[in-house]
Design a protein around this nucleic acid. Structure first.
Lengths: 340, 340
DNA sequence: CTGTTAGCGCCTTCAC
DNA sequence: GTGAAGGCGCTAACAG
């Protein structure tokens, strides 16, 4: 655990020069710099983060808030792993650390963020799974901490966001089903305030209207975004008997297949299904559901680029205000058939 | 972003007293302490982490290493969320932060840890998904950073570990199958060096010997721990035709069900299946597989207790060296039938 | 019980 | 191109 003075002493130069050499500051003799870098490796010297942060007034760390208690996150499976992998890789290249902040179910997320901000643990924070009315965003807009949201919100304020185009997913889903002749198309929504559900519903309503179909409130279902919720949905659909159903949750889809089997309904021929986010789990359902593909790693990089942009003093404020809608690709599946 | 001097000035007392009051140090008048605490809330004061860490020589942060590139982790789905939720809750109660350290696929985990240690970001680190020969453990035993592993290893050294009893799981699985009359019992293993696979295999071999059954190497299969690996396993089993199979991966099990369907093999009647870790995903397979249940939150708390114990100066070194094997409960399932 | 002071490790400004 | 010195915010040791 050598410190910068050990290194300076070892080289018979001052700590100031060592610091300048290690931080690529101008005004250091090339030979001196080389000696310093070599000695640093030799002695295994790495600058202490606390000292550096205190001096610089910045931690070079980005926070990423995850609400671990929420079932909606647990069900995401590989999503966050892939996203964080890409984000971390991007940030590391820029000399930033990534600190994942698990906000416990028992914590108030807004208060949790408040303490976080004050302690100066991170230079900026990314929040996910935005709500239609999001207290975390309210809190952050009042603070001075730069932040970025993965997901939109109706909470007022001018803040940067990156989101997937759930509206577009819903429109395309309706279009594919209508093209097969479906008219009674059910919609499965989450039973909470998560923003994606609103966009999904809005896209559905718009596309149904475009197709000249009337909305039947009895065909809109709200369930927990979990396997159990999907299983329950199977029973609800057995009663309502639409010819097709659209979902925006992978876990729900897995449960739905099991629920339909229980009801004696065969996915595809008896009930067309289109769902959201292709993943390995869904690929092995039979018949394979029609899904949408998204490049999660690309989203991770986008988050990285835009959160770093928030911190660069040379970025014009307007340019830093990302509002990015990520498109998704439709992947046909055997779960879509013409209605009987 | 008030600092401690603002607070002291505001109260007309010294920063030393403020610090003592906020840190519950002895020798502060009760009334003074109350005034300080109140003013801190009023002014929204929270101690700056960098200043505190620098002074104390400790960050009060525990690192948790996750290799995000590894498919074995991505497939764990809810496992890490539940674990981290419980661990974070425990640590927060002890005044510690949890820093999740995603180690990118492109990084060398041992080198990644090396830099981490030197920077003094964390006071201790937890590593997961241990390998039979684990370079991270080698590196950490050479360093002075306290660490705890979730999973055992054959890497030499005296370090604390917490693990699930995969050996016991395998023994119990064999016993349940033998009780039903099975003799040709196949074993599905991961295709990598992850330690759990060795314990699982060892338990299998011991239990088979106990039952007086000879081991058939042609019934041991290695596949990637993923849905695709399970699908491939389905074909392999269709060729080898055992009457039962044991698995230690959830994702593999999901893929296996799909693979067996493809081969015209009905899980249960045609091939008994017992797998590891009950989770919502498996519960909705049909027939429901026999599984094992583990209290993941309890493991999270155990990790918390033992990692904190590593840091308390008053803990005797021997007491700090946890070697904890977590038992699992067998949950019967319709996937186990007598052999044809 | 409270105030004063020093210094944790680092970077940066100001001399030279 | 380099050295010396100060201070980021905090806590602990020492005086009073």
């Amino acid at each position: 655990m050598a410190d910068i003075r050990d290194l300076a002493l070892h080289l018979n130069i001052s700590t100031g020069t060592v610091s300048r050499a290690l931080n690529n500051r101008p005004g250091v003799n090339a030979a001196t710099r080389a000696r310093v870098l070599e000695a640093a490796i030799e002695l295994g010297y790495v600058a202490n983060q606390s000292g550096r942060s205190l001096r610089r007034g910045a931690t070079n760390t980005i926070g990423f808030l995850i609400e671990t208690g929420s079932a909606a996150n647990q069900e995401s499976g590989d999503f966050f792993f892939i996203l964080l992998d890409a984000l971390h890789l991007y940030l590391a290249g820029k000399g930033f650390d990534l600190m994942i902040l698990p906000c416990h179910s028992a914590d108030d997320p807004a208060e949790f963020l408040g303490r976080l901000v004050a302690r100066g643990l991170v230079d900026a924070v990314v929040i996910t799974a935005t709500r239609r009315h999001d207290r975390r965003i309210e809190m952050l807009t009042r603070s001075t901490l730069p932040f970025l949201t993965l997901g939109r919100s109706e909470t007022p304020g001018a803040y940067p966001w990156i989101d997937m185009d759930f509206d577009g997913v819903a429109r395309r889903s309706v279009a594919e089903l209508v093209a097969q002749g479906h008219r009674r198309i059910a919609l499965a929504l989450p039973d909470n305030d998560v923003m994606l559900g609103y966009h999904y519903r809005r896209g559905y309503e718009a596309a149904m209207a475009d197709a000249g179909l009337t909305l039947d409130p009895a065909l809109i279902f709200r369930n927990p975004t979990s396997e159990a919720g999907g299983f329950a949905l199977g029973r609800q659909l057995a009663q309502a008997r639409p010819s097709a159903v659209m979902l925006c949750s992978e876990a729900t889809t897995v449960g739905l297949y099991a629920g339909l089997q229980r009801e004696g309904i065969t996915p595809g021929p008896d009930l067309s299904i289109v769902t959201f986010r292709e993943n390995p789990q869904l690929r092995f359902l039979s018949p394979a559901p029609a899904t949408f593909r998204v490049d999660i790693s690309a989203i991770g990089r986008l988050i990285g680029e835009n959160v770093i942009a928030l911190l660069s003093p040379d970025t014009r404020p307007e340019a830093a205000r990302a509002e990015i809608l990520v498109p998704l690709d439709y992947l046909p599946g055997a779960s879509i058939c013409p209605p009987r």
